[in-house]
Design a binder for these strands. Structure first.
Length: 245
DNA sequence: AACCCGTGGAA
DNA sequence: TTTCCAAGGGT
């Protein structure tokens, strides 16, 4: 839920989700449509599908994956999420690089970093033992002080940060664009993404007739969107009736 | 590497 | 009113 989504917006959804699915097995035993309904409002519904499929895989495994390799093999689990589970759930030694931490390291280094470089810096800096505390502190530093518009005066790294020592010039900020963690997005208003979201939202409330799709989504290339959602397994087509799978 | 994927709050 | 971007991942 936290992938590309602010924690304040996740918390109420997370509480409701765990109330409905207290265990992995509960989620695995449900229908994808139930998961998608609980996901409504969070965006990126493919994450809900990935979570649902991951729950199925873990349920079949019988044990929860607890190595980086095993976690990375799960759908929707990448470099950040796998390490987040390791450090925050299992309290194992793993350095997470989210958008906040990537920004901190880029500014400390004083130049733009590739994801590989940022992960290497994080790995080299990680104190062993209570690594989750380190990860949490660094993440919060990025979320509170080392913001896109920073508050350098209060930063504990102000004497060692290369960008700060260079004068903290916004034009020279090595962490523009979320330090490359999240990429610029195309226009949302009037886009097919918006239309897909409208259709999925309509389906959480019931079914939709194919003939009415254009009106529901207010988008010209309506049928292409239906096909895209069907291909992703987020929508099921029965005759001329659309419903959640 | 480049591009795609939802949604909503804040500036 | 736009624009930015948020505890990223997949192709």
């Amino acid at each position: 839920m936290l992938q590309q989504t602010q924690i304040a917006r996740v918390i109420p959804k997370w509480i409701a989700f765990l109330e409905r699915f207290p265990t992995v097995a509960d989620c695995a035993a449900a229908e994808l449509g139930d998961v998608l309904r609980l996901w409504q409002g969070l965006g990126y519904p493919r994450r809900a599908r990935n979570l649902y499929e991951a729950a199925g895989e873990i349920d079949r495994l019988g044990t929860f994956p607890d190595t980086l390799e095993q976690l990375l093999a799960l759908p929707g689990v990448g470099a950040y999420t796998a390490r987040a589970v390791l450090t925050f759930a299992f309290e194992a030694d793993a350095a997470v690089v989210d958008t906040n931490i990537a920004r901190v390291y880029a500014r400390v280094a004083g130049h733009r970093l590739t994801t590989t470089q940022a992960q290497a810096m994080a790995d080299a800096s990680l104190p062993l033992g209570d690594s989750w505390r380190w990860n949490q502190c660094l993440m919060d530093l990025g979320a509170t002080l080392c913001r896109p518009v920073p508050h350098c005066a209060d930063c504990p790294l102000r004497s060692t940060c290369a960008w700060q020592l260079a004068g903290c010039d916004p034009v020279l900020d090595p962490a523009v664009g979320s330090a490359g963690v999240s990429r610029p997005q195309s226009r949302f208003e009037g886009s097919e993404r918006q239309a897909r979201g409208r259709l999925l939202k309509a389906l959480t409330a019931g079914t939709v007739r194919v003939d009415d799709v254009s009106k529901v989504m207010q988008h010209p290339a309506a049928m292409r969107l239906v096909e895209a959602l069907c291909a992703e397994g987020l929508v099921r087509l029965e005759g001329k009736t659309l419903r959640l799978p």
